[in-house]
Design a protein around this nucleic acid. Structure first.
Length: 484
DNA sequence: TTTTGAGTTGTTCGA
DNA sequence: GTCGAACAACTCAAA
């Protein structure tokens, strides 16, 4: 008899409870990853995520081989694939770590019931969150809708579970089940190969995740408070894609941050570490919201927003997507995204506010673009964050909070490092003009070799006008009209 | 039950 | 240049 280990968004060997439990049984383990796009429907991974997944599976496959086993790759609806494996091999147990996407919960519950009905030991574990989304509740037993009390409750719930290292050996069957060739899944783009920027920026896999965490907790985490908002500075952990694919888990992040803080500062919770861990808690909060409000990716949490009449301006949308809005900080962010599959968080807020409030384009359009282009695209975080920016989410930004791209640029990219990197055509403009080239005198533009409208676009909207327009629309919405 | 205090990330205006 | 107030009430969570 054997044990099936169904790997999903837990592509690591350390701190992996389903793997530990499977190995503990003492029987051969069949580790399988199922390409389950059929189950995920419209939320199957986007282009950038697929690129990452290829690298992550390839890395995991080597790690499993080093432990005397082999990762089996299968394609199709998960239930059918699992049943097929059961009929081919004598499987007594099926273990996995939980996912929280609504489609995955429905499917996994169905599979678990069916397996148990056949007398198979089917069990799920928690590898992806500090706490299960249902275990944190208000005193009335209800879900939290405000971050701060959620964060307090999360901390009061105690220290996250201690970690187990990767097992030395994963006992294997002699004759393995048949596996797909990873290359046949077509996760990596070929014609055209748009992934060179991703390859330069990232290394998927558990080892890379660990070294990134250790680099970050070695020093940067203590300056996180000051540097995290500066996109031109490497002040953030950049762990988001590793966390999304479960190459590292939040418990590992938590314990490593705390241990390194104690060792280096003598304090259990220095300021930078606390601020950083609160970002991990935001990830938890997003999962909490998605669990309790499964329509989060598709419907505004504040229902009055359902009637909002959004703009259908394809040209404006296309300019935003291509990084050609004429607002340097917005364009820099959108180009960083397109090139590397990632964008600094401060800039994500700026570009999102610009799309939703300056262009009045639906947050779901932005959500879908991010879904396809981000290597860290995560259903919970992406949906919760877009709703937050649009003002229709939990604990959302008030409608009158409209980011001014010029002020944001001068505040958080004061010397223009970030903009010059991603918008090189205006890099010769002086610092005081780099975030507002349209205010430059003709002579200043000439000296920088820039002709607006030729080398770099003129702004596609007047921000002051757009701000007032958005305020008016939101005001109407509050008054019970449709915002038109 | 009612009350109370608080709420990620901003901008603009006028003193 | 700097600072506080207004933006606009509303909902949440706990006492």
């Amino acid at each position: 008899m054997t044990t099936l280990l169904w790997l999903r968004r837990d592509l690591r060997l350390a701190d992996n409870p389903a793997l530990d439990a499977a190995v503990a049984i003492g029987r051969p383990v069949i580790p399988v990853y199922i390409c389950d796009d059929a189950d995920a429907g419209e939320w199957s991974p986007g282009g950038a995520s697929r690129w990452w997944l290829h690298g992550s599976l390839s890395a995991l496959s080597s790690e499993i081989e080093a432990r005397g086993n082999r990762l089996i790759l299968k394609t199709g609806p998960a239930e059918a694939v699992i049943n097929e494996l059961i009929s081919e091999t004598g499987i007594a147990s099926v273990y996995w770590n939980r996912r929280y996407e609504p489609w995955a919960r429905r499917r996994d519950e169905k599979i678990k019931t069916a397996l148990k009905g056949k007398g198979i030991d089917a069990r799920s574990f928690n590898a992806g969150l500090l706490r299960e989304p249902w275990s944190i509740t208000t005193h009335k037993g209800e879900p939290y809708k405000v971050f701060t009390p959620f964060w307090k409750a999360l901390r009061a719930s105690g220290v996250p579970e201690q970690l187990k290292p990767a097992p030395q050996q994963i006992p294997a069957l002699n004759d393995f089940a048949k596996s797909d060739d990873l290359n046949s899944w077509g996760l990596i783009p070929t014609k055209p190969d748009w992934a060179s920027g991703l390859r330069d920026a990232w290394t998927p896999g558990e080892d890379a995740a660990q070294s990134r965490l250790h680099d970050f907790t070695g020093a940067a985490v203590f300056n996180y408070q000051d540097k995290r908002n500066l996109p031109g500075v490497s002040g953030t952990s950049r762990l988001s894609p590793h966390l999304h694919f479960g190459e590292i888990g939040p418990r590992q992040v938590w314990h490593t941050v705390i241990a390194s803080a104690l060792a280096q500062t003598g304090s259990p919770m220095p300021r930078g570490a606390e601020t950083y861990l609160s970002e991990i808690a935001w990830r938890e909060f997003s999962y909490h919201l998605l669990f309790h409000f499964p329509e989060l990716p598709l419907k505004p949490l504040r229902t009055e927003f359902s009637d909002f009449l959004w703009s259908n301006d394809r040209n404006a949308l296309s300019a935003w997507q291509r990084g050609a809005t004429g607002f340097p900080i917005v364009d820099a962010g959108m180009r960083e995204l397109w090139t590397t599959g990632w964008m600094h968080n401060r800039v994500r807020m700026i570009v999102a506010s610009f799309l939703v409030k300056d262009l009045l384009i639906d947050w779901q359009t932005g959500e879908k673009w991010f879904w396809d282009t981000l290597v860290d695209a995560d259903l919970a975080s992406n949906a919760a964050s877009w709703q937050w920016v649009a003002g229709c989410g939990a604990d959302a930004a008030p409608y009158f909070r409209i980011f001014n791209p010029t002020i944001q640029g001068t505040k958080f990219d004061p010397d223009g490092t970030y903009v010059r990197k991603w918008v090189p055509e205006i890099s010769k403009l002086p610092d005081k003009l780099i975030h507002a080239p349209w205010t430059a005198k003709p002579i200043e533009l000439a000296e920088a070799g820039v002709e607006l409208g030729r080398d770099y676009p003129a702004p596609i909207v007047d921000h002051a006008m757009a701000r007032n327009r958005a305020l008016e629309k939101y005001k109407l919405l509050k008054a019970g009209k449709n915002g038109n």
